[in-house]
Write a protein that binds this DNA or RNA. Structure first.
Lengths: 258, 258
DNA sequence: CACTCGTACTCCTCTAGACGACTCGACCTT
DNA sequence: AAGGTCGAGTCGTCTAGAGGAGTACGAGTG
């Protein structure tokens, strides 16, 4: 692989020149998607610079979303920017399935291989904010589920949902994330009749932490979706905060005229 | 200004803790828009860490777009993205009003003075793309309406809608943008029965041109909303492409469970 | 054969400096 | 008064290390 050398006559700083070399190697195809970049040690040797300089160069490519560093393994060229949209989530007038059920259906329909990782389930006292949103009393507990959805191995969505422990009891929540059907299918059996959802959609730039979790490029916005499920008495059954990588999603809604 | 100290018990690395402190200071208002962050030297002194550690923390905030570093001057808090949300557009199971009608109702409800400018109406042959979206035949004409919505004099949304000339004929479209009621109220009189809308929501970064029209600062995403109105036979009556300044909007949908 | 362990390799975080470039205001010169 | 010089303060880039933590894989063990 051709990487060239630092040009002292070039007014651009070395780290930028190194970044250019690596970028060019990717563009030329010397480094294809999935390939491992030369390790930091190799680049230090090749260019004769300090470690931080090499890291700064690679950081450029990471911010651009062209490579992904994996602790202990190496730095790898990312798949090219996602062109295909992932999920056309279609709601309204159609049965609403939750979690992986909806995700996997939509993902497969658009030709992606869906997956979930970083699934965490815990039970504990609700924060004041969540207590307010679920209209819970003092001391009531909630089940917190956080998870990350992948399409073809790339993170595209993170979600955290909160369910009153009284609603969750016995409903075998984890299954909602491992197979179709899931919690909404079971709610009626529990005496809670699911009536409707409200969804609040907005967009913003992600924080550094959010960018890390979604492995987002610099300058890529996220779609924020806050979903609340209500039963027939108007009581909230669940709230779910979702963060989606904006380039991967188009949300579709159907709105009756009156 | 309160910045706290590194917590060695915290498993998060120091640079991330420092970033959190700075972020919190901005969120609390200790650091307002335009304010200068403590210089690197001050932060080094305060936290007792090396320069690179402080720089890495500030780099986080720069990547998030919350601060801007100016060589030789300092690092400054960026102008906040608009804090007050403009329109909570609520759809579904409610009569859907179009154009200024819906906009002005929502804007006034949230305490803004609504307005429309750059209103343009023209009639002409449809482009192939629009012909396809409206399922029109060759040579059919469409009425194109483009407009920009303002809240308290600030542009927050641009919209372009396309209506087959056959549907538009006699419905006095312009009034739809200057008063309540408007075109959807008249469609039934014309023999077209409005049945439902589909809305496709996505987000992305604006082009330079779009940024100019919405007077957006760097790093502010836009929400793209594509709305199609259908009659009872499933025929498209109108398509409308909307661009909203993301910080100003939360879209609200109500989705029946089944 | 299955399993554990050690080791090499990788990226992550941090230290403690150095020099350079840019900005701005104080001071000096004209 | 006008203009130039200079220095303090600031961020930009870089060096030369260090220990840590995660991964992969082969050697040794049961």
């Amino acid at each position: 692989m051709q990487l060239g050398a630092i040009d002292r006559a070039d007014d651009r700083p070395p780290y930028r020149q190194i970044a250019d070399h690596l970028r060019a190697a990717i563009d030329r195809g010397d480094l294809a998607a999935g390939d491992k970049l030369p390790s930091e040690a190799v680049l230090i040797e090749h260019y004769g610079v300090a470690r931080m300089t090499v890291r700064q160069a690679v950081q450029e490519l990471r911010n651009e979303g062209r490579v992904v560093a994996e602790h202990g393994r190496g730095t790898f060229v990312r798949q090219p920017v996602q062109v295909r949209r992932l999920a056309s989530e279609r709601f309204a007038r159609r049965h609403r399935e939750a979690g992986l059920a909806a995700f996997s259906v939509e993902a497969q329909k658009t030709g992606f291989t869906p997956n979930v990782d970083q699934l965490e389930v815990s039970t504990g006292p609700a924060t004041p904010e969540i207590r307010d949103r679920l209209r819970l009393g003092d001391g009531e507990e909630v089940v917190v589920r956080s998870r990350r959805y992948l399409a073809d191995g790339q993170p595209v969505e993170t979600a955290v949902s909160y369910l009153p422990a009284s609603v969750a009891a016995g409903s075998r929540i984890v299954e909602a994330d491992t197979g179709p059907g899931g919690i909404y299918a079971r709610l009626e059996d529990m005496g809670f009749e699911l009536d409707h959802f409200t969804e609040e959609v907005s967009a913003r730039m992600p924080s550094a932490e959010e960018r890390r979790r979604l492995q987002l490029t610099d300058g890529v916005p996220v779609v924020v979706l806050v979903r609340t499920a209500y039963d027939t008495t108007g009581r909230p059954l669940e709230v779910c905060d979702t963060l989606k990588a904006a380039p991967a999603y188009v949300l579709e809604y159907e709105v009756p005229a009156r």
